[in-house]
Write a protein that binds this DNA or RNA. Structure first.
Lengths: 103, 103
DNA sequence: TTGACAAGTAGGAGAACACCTACCTATTGT
DNA sequence: ACAATAGGTAGGTGTTCTCCTACTTGTCAA
């Protein structure tokens, strides 16, 4: 449900990063962590509940796949703030221009 | 320090949203919440530690101002995933085109 | 200088989180 | 049918989070 909360954990961000390279089964993902496999499963459940990943059963494996839709929401959340840092950059540029002028 | 963790709380996202309209003193911010003012102060501390806001003392008030830099980091974190949802959109478009062709 | 006000800090209670080990379920290959 | 494998679930524990009220600090105004 809550994308922000789901991505608050470094472990879960690492999981999404791993899934950038393509869908992977749980064991494959768990191999990248020192923590126990069940704990990784729990993290995957949080990502699932947030809609960030989906699982597809393939024999006895469950293949996890990244779902970008919630990240798009995040990107949209971010847009009103973009204007903000552009302004910041603009005023920085002005400052530099002034420095340049007086130097 | 951790922008993701700072934004995981709906209260803190609301605070950053309020600061989009410009810098505000704590009482002004706290008025938008049902929770106690000290609790809002604590949330502001988390945002400060994440670099998302800065305070400037003005008499007995402390004016909080939004700092967009960490949000830019977030935006940069997001970029590798953008490719992903563009692909998703593209394949959706293809699907629609096929539907169109066979219909 | 004293009272009022803005806002942070202290300490504590309860909820949520993140781990763990042990166990259960489903599937596959022999 | 049975052993092995993939992976989820249960239950417990320690830690972190979030809220509270009470208190402290700094500033302004009378």
């Amino acid at each position: 449900m809550d994308v922000f909360a789901a991505l608050a954990s470094p472990v879960r961000r690492e999981l999404t990063a791993l899934l950038l390279d393509g869908p992977r089964p749980v064991n494959d993902l768990a191999a990248h962590f020192t923590m126990s496999r069940p704990s990784v499963s729990e993290h995957l459940k949080v990502l699932r509940d947030a809609g960030l990943v989906t699982e597809q059963r393939h024999g006895r494996q469950r293949i996890y796949r990244l779902e970008p839709a919630p990240l798009r929401e995040l990107s949209e959340w971010l847009t009103p703030y973009e204007r903000f840092w552009r302004e910041k950059l603009a005023s920085l540029r002005e400052l530099l221009d002034e420095e340049d002028g007086t130097a």
